Amino acid sequence: MMAVETLTRVRGLRLASVDFGGEGRPVLALHGHFGRARAFAPLAAALAPEYRLIALEQRGHGHSDRGDGDFSQDAYVADAAEFLRGLGLGPVIVLGHSMGGVTAFHLAARHPELVRALVVEEGGALNRQPEVPHPVLDIRDWPCRAATLGELRRQIEARGIPDASYFLESAVEHPDGWGLLFDYTDMMDSQQALVGDWWADWLGSTCPALFVHGLDSLILPTTMARQMAERRPNTVLRELPGCGHWAHDDDPAGFTRAVREFLATV
Rank of each mutant, 00 (worst) to 15 (best):
C243S: 14
P175H: 11
D186T: 09
T235F: 00
L84I: 07
Q73R: 07
G204Y: 03
E261G: 03
P49R: 06
L107K: 09
L107M: 10
D186A: 10
A171Q: 04
A117H: 05
R110P: 06
P162A: 14
W178L: 01
L126E: 15
V266R: 12
E50R: 15
A147F: 09
D65V: 01
P233F: 00
V172L: 07
V92Y: 04
R38Y: 02
D138E: 10
T8L: 05
A146L: 04
R226Y: 02
I156Y: 09
V10W: 01
M187I: 10
L53Y: 08
H248N: 15
D250T: 07
G67Y: 00
L95F: 04
Q191L: 00
M2C: 09
A55Y: 01
L149F: 14
V119G: 15
D189E: 11
V27G: 13
E122V: 07
R14E: 06
A164L: 03
A37Y: 01
A29S: 15
L194P: 13
P112I: 02
F71I: 01
H63Y: 14
L7V: 02
P133V: 08
A117V: 07
V132N: 15
L114K: 10
P162F: 11
A81F: 11
I161W: 02
P42D: 05
L28S: 08
D251K: 00
G60R: 01
V94L: 04
T8W: 07
E169H: 15
H245V: 03
A104K: 10
F34K: 01
G179R: 10
M99V: 02
V102S: 13
M99I: 00
G35A: 06
W178G: 03
T265L: 04
T222Q: 15
F20T: 02
E230L: 12
P241N: 05
M224L: 15
G88T: 09
L7H: 12
R159E: 11
F34Y: 15
D176Y: 07
P130V: 06
E5W: 01
P175E: 09
H63P: 04
V27Q: 12
E230F: 02
P162W: 12
E261L: 04
V94E: 03
